[in-house]
């Protein structure tokens, strides 16, 4: 039982990260039907921004987190304006291939400037005391991850459901042309969506970087892919679906390692993807058109 609870905590912290990244995939897909494969690299850049902010500018963790969040958000907007906006009415495959191109540009530009060697954060960045509850161990860092993830999700849900901009986002997602006729500035709304999604990816990058203490220019590839699967699992385009999908993938991976074989922990994620695509292509919460963003 203790072992199970411990593994659930491991799975939840991993899953929270996937959920944060998956939200960005899902929001962007919801609004312009684009699978933004560069999203995992925005996450990577979040980690790098925080690395430079803490190592060379000696900012504290929370300031670095905000800086990384804002810079990644702005980067998301810039990517959208430069790479995707000109292709908005092109075929979807064109935009998809462009997204892969952007992904490579970000990865190898970072590698050119930062080098391919892994980097580590300053050791005294964050207090990482461990607490033990009847044998189950939880660290301060894991608590930060849960809390930050939950707070950000609440804020996001509030923005999407209760604000004017959120309403605009939902409107554009349902029908872009109709939204335009209603006086909604579609370009601004799409930019804002990219901003939000990229902010979340940036935060995920910082959390992962500090939690595992290892970042490199290609770190976004695998988590990006798994978060994408999480988004598909939850129903791509659906915000609560992305959260559930992220947590589910994290826990599934952990439990397979714990009670099966660690050899299959990555395979299981892709098996889930295949099963979802065969059995319920719309994902867990997919059909919920009203909630789509």
């Amino acid at each position: 039982m203790i072992q199970f609870l411990q593994q659930m905590i491991n799975g939840l912290s991993l899953g929270s990260i996937y959920a944060l990244i998956a939200l960005g995939y899902t929001m962007v897909y919801g609004i312009i039907k684009l699978i933004n494969f560069a999203h995992g690299d925005v996450y990577m850049l979040g980690a790098f921004v925080a690395f430079y902010a803490t190592t060379f500018f000696h900012l504290n963790f929370f300031v670095a987190l905000v800086v990384a969040m804002v810079l990644c958000g702005v980067l998301g907007v810039v990517i959208e304006r430069i790479a995707y906006k000109p292709l908005r009415h092109a075929t979807r495959i064109t935009a998809l291939i462009t997204a892969m191109g952007v992904s490579y540009v970000l990865e190898y530009t970072t590698q050119y400037f930062a080098g391919s060697e892994v980097k580590t954060f300053p050791t005294d960045l964050l207090d990482n005391t461990a607490f033990s509850f009847g044998g189950v161990r939880i660290t301060m860092m894991q608590i930060y991850i849960f809390v930050i993830t939950i707070v950000l999700m609440i804020i996001l849900t509030y923005i999407v459901n209760k604000t004017k901009m959120g309403r605009a986002m939902r409107a554009v997602s349902v029908d872009e042309d109709a939204a335009k006729l209603m006086g909604i500035n579609v370009d601004t709304t799409i930019s804002f969506t990219f901003f939000l999604g990229s902010c979340l990816a940036g935060v995920a990058g910082v959390l992962v970087g500090v939690y595992y203490n290892s970042i490199n220019p290609l770190m976004g590839m695998t988590p990006g892919l798994k978060a994408f699967i999480a988004a598909v699992f939850g129903g791509i385009g659906n915000i609560p679906g992305a959260m559930i999908g992220g947590l589910f993938i994290g826990i599934a991976e952990t439990l397979v390692t714990a009670y099966g074989s660690s050899l299959y922990k990555d395979a299981i994620v892709y098996v889930i993807l295949i099963l979802v695509l065969i059995l319920k292509p719309d994902g867990l919460l997919g059909k919920n058109v009203k909630e789509k963003v």
């Binding site: 072992q3 411990q6 593994q7 491991n10 799975g11 912290s13 991993l14 992962v208 595992y212 290892s214 290609l218 770190m219 590839m221 695998t222 991976e253 952990t254 439990l255 390692t257 714990a258 074989s261 660690s262 050899l263 922990k265 990555d266």
Partner: peptide, 20 residues
Amino acid sequence: QENYTSGDTDFNAALSKIKE
């Protein structure tokens, strides 16, 4: 015998298992 894959950063699941 447990396994990981190059590029992994989270080893907690396998390590929690090994610890027992």
